Amino acid sequence: MTTAAGQVPLAHQPPRHPLDPDPVRATKARAVFALGLIGALTGIFVGGVVPATIALQLARQARREAYASGGFLTGAAWLRRGERLARVGLVLVAVAVVTLVVIGVVRLAGSPYGQDFAPNVD
């Protein structure tokens, strides 16, 4: 069976077994995306490290569950987006921490060392 002249024939799908579950989106995929988004939005304020780390851990669990389900759990695109956002959040946290450390070192280097006495004290 072909759809039109010159096109590749369509593959015939075998009928599904009646006891096979319907494919559904994994609920952890939504959670990974939401936590990744929160981690990316709050990453510049160091608080984004917690939701981003949780998102990456949930993504690992969700991938294992999706693999074990044999294709009946969907949501791989949401997982990828959530993982990317979580990694962006962690990079923003790292940039914020490095920036704060550099600012602290520069301020510490510019401040006087030791006790500052009046000019008339030996």
Rank of each mutant, 00 (worst) to 15 (best):
G6E: 09
L108K: 07
R63M: 08
A96W: 10
Y113I: 03
L19Q: 03
F117W: 12
L100Q: 11
A29P: 09
T99C: 00
D20W: 03
T42R: 12
H12A: 00
N120E: 13
V105L: 00
L108E: 03
W78G: 08
V88P: 09
R107G: 07
T99G: 08
G6T: 00
V32H: 04
T2C: 04
V98K: 10
P14T: 07
Q61T: 10
P119Q: 05
A109G: 07
V106L: 01
A86L: 05
V106R: 10
D22R: 12
A52Q: 05
A52H: 10
G43Q: 12
Q115F: 08
A76D: 15
L79A: 06
V93T: 12
A68S: 06
F72K: 15
V91H: 04
R63W: 09
L37S: 04
A59P: 06
K28M: 14
V88E: 09
Q13R: 11
V93M: 14
A4Q: 13
L100A: 11
V8W: 07
V8G: 04
I103P: 01
R60L: 02
R80P: 00
P14Q: 12
V102M: 08
Q13D: 00
A40Q: 11
I103D: 15
H17Y: 02
T27H: 05
F72I: 01
P9K: 02
A26I: 06
S69H: 09
G89K: 14
P23F: 12
V46L: 15
A118T: 01
T42E: 10
